[in-house]
Design a protein around this nucleic acid. Structure first.
Lengths: 152, 152
DNA sequence: TACAACTAGTTGCGAGCACAACTATATCAT
DNA sequence: ATGATATAGTTGTGCTCGCAACTAGTTGTA
């Protein structure tokens, strides 16, 4: 175990770049949303719902997509429900289940903000990369994700 | 502003892959450290000090490297100081400054753990990527970092 | 020298999160 | 049917963090 192959300089650059930059990048993109009166967590929540069939998801599925615990989502829902962006609907077939549902107001809201978010993602990441880098990010993260998800 | 160019499929794959995978990856690598009795935050702290000249850094510089607020670092120091991995040393020249200093015990500790961490980084990321992907991650994050840092 | 402005670090406090315990409902085995 | 087990969601609690306010020490200006 003490006899590990250390990272060569290209590997080190990739690892260090990823670790030290990804936090800052995600943070900046989240901050770009604040002038529009929403934080990154709420934006992700509305975005997930807007892409879901009928703009609704079971609470537990939504929590998993957002990388939140079930309790974490319960609390985060308080804000977006108070703002009337999301409502809750009991499932008629399974009494345990509650759907989070994007309201018309929530839909209109995220439609308005999405172009700004898109611009932020372009300016801070996508438009800085060459086509080859874009492709490598896509294939690289795909491999990493496969491995991550097989680790349960 | 409503007339933004949407992401094409390669761009979308790169962005989505990055967003949804980077959190999980960093999380898993941090969890790999837990069997050794340390969390990701403390590991990063010890690692930064181990690479610094004389194994010491001013508190404010260390906070910046760790992406912590000054108060956040003050609190995190409590744990590693209690474990005797780090000590604090007042600067003789500037009475405001305190150095965080890696102790012998802290140095030995991180030396022991580093190979396991390295193995984790290899297994979960580096060894999954082709040389071309490694290179693209390195150059890509370098460009992103330059842009991020120019945004103050 | 003396006073203002700045910098380093700590403390009070509140936000956001996970974990454990709990309630309610559903499913499965006999 | 019925009792054990599993699943969905909420509530209580504690941890980590950032922000604002504070203390202490330094630097700049006159």
């Amino acid at each position: 175990m003490a006899n590990q192959k250390w990272l060569n300089s290209a590997e080190m650059k990739a690892w260090r770049g990823f670790v030290s930059t990804s936090y800052d990048l995600l943070n900046l993109i989240a901050r770009d949303l604040e002038p529009f009166g929403i934080d990154g967590g709420d934006y992700q929540l509305l975005a997930m719902l807007s892409e879901a069939p009928n703009q609704k998801l079971k609470m537990c599925d939504l929590a998993e997509k957002l990388r939140l615990s079930r309790s974490g989502l319960t609390r985060r829902m308080e804000g977006v429900m108070k703002a009337k962006y999301v409502s809750q609907i009991r499932d008629e077939d399974d009494g345990r289940v509650i759907f989070a549902h994007l309201t018309k107001k929530g839909y209109d809201f995220i439609k308005t903000i999405a172009p700004h978010h898109l611009k932020s993602v372009r300016n801070r990441m996508i438009d800085l990369l060459s086509p080859a880098e874009i492709k490598a990010f896509g294939s690289g993260f795909e491999k990493i994700a496969k491995n991550v998800n097989s680790s349960d």
